[in-house]
Amino acid sequence: MMVSKKTLAVAAMALSVVFLLVAPFLFKPYGVFILSTWVVMTIAAIGLNLTLGYAGQVSLAQAAFVGIGSYITAYLTTRGWPFWSTYMLAGTSCFIVGWLLGYPALRVQHHYLAFVTLAFNTLVYLIFRNEEWLTRGIYGIMNIPRPEVLGWSMAKPIPFYYFLLAHLALISAATWALIQSPWGRAFIAVRENPIRALSLGVDTRRYTLMAFALGAGLGGISGSLYAALVQFIDPTPFALGLSLNLLLMVIVGGSGYFFGPFLGAVVAVLLPEWLRFAQGYYLMGYAALVMLLMIFCPTGLLGFADRLLTPKAKSDSGPNPVLPDSAAPQKAAG
């Protein structure tokens, strides 16, 4: 049964990869644009899944990091800096700011932490909107160029889509390696029981800060790519709404599951597009769907799938049909 679960996961992944590779030939340019947006948002959600899903730290500030990354790339590439330098700068700046934002998390948790990060997001948004000398405020920054790779222009939608896809592949591989390393285990230990982790000598402080920093760094990278994708940015997309949306992606997909953000971003980015035929009602339908999903599978889509596919053979290990004390997902190998 474990094998078939793994086989299923591998098959689903292989199909998804094939789909993503041939997709540009199946869709009109608008479809390619939406898929590109999915890639960018998935990267930001992978970051938030590290912070929230693996390390258990609530953050409502992910949009702020996407915004900071976007503005760094927008501001600098329109002044002649090469894309790659702005990309690195976006990632490292957000990593540092995320590290600093982690300090409150050492003192407060849960809804208090949510409010601290929410306030941070609002602050950053106000800077984008009001500091016109730096960000051009509501006029935004136009004509953001797309990069070249080894002399090949990524300006056209399809090459740029593959460019983004390559990023997603690399970032996924790096994140996977991190999660499978002792670091990933330490994150999970800190989330499951911080006091217990502390009693074993886990440096909970360092891992908490690192969870914020890594999540923010991926937010910044996602923002840098976003700027090059849309080629025009203003403050609007980086308001609290996007932070909530990214949170939704992580939770709907399955918080703490590696593929949760991928699936969550499908729900948050692609589903609204598919529901557009319903015109004025599509947002209502979408909201209703998300509510139903959360009522019937609070551990997200992957948590739900995990439950369906895991044989209920636990009873042979004793008379305690235990579930973990929290609603945290039970993960099998991989």
Partner: peptide, 24 residues
């Protein structure tokens, strides 16, 4: 220090629990 009650990390494997004993 082995506290009272259950102190394992239920989401991690047995080997990874053991590994955490070397966290410091």
């Amino acid at each position: 220090y082995v506290p009272q009650g259950r102190n394992i990390f239920s989401e991690l494997s047995v080997a990874h629990n053991l590994e955490l004993g070397a966290a410091a």
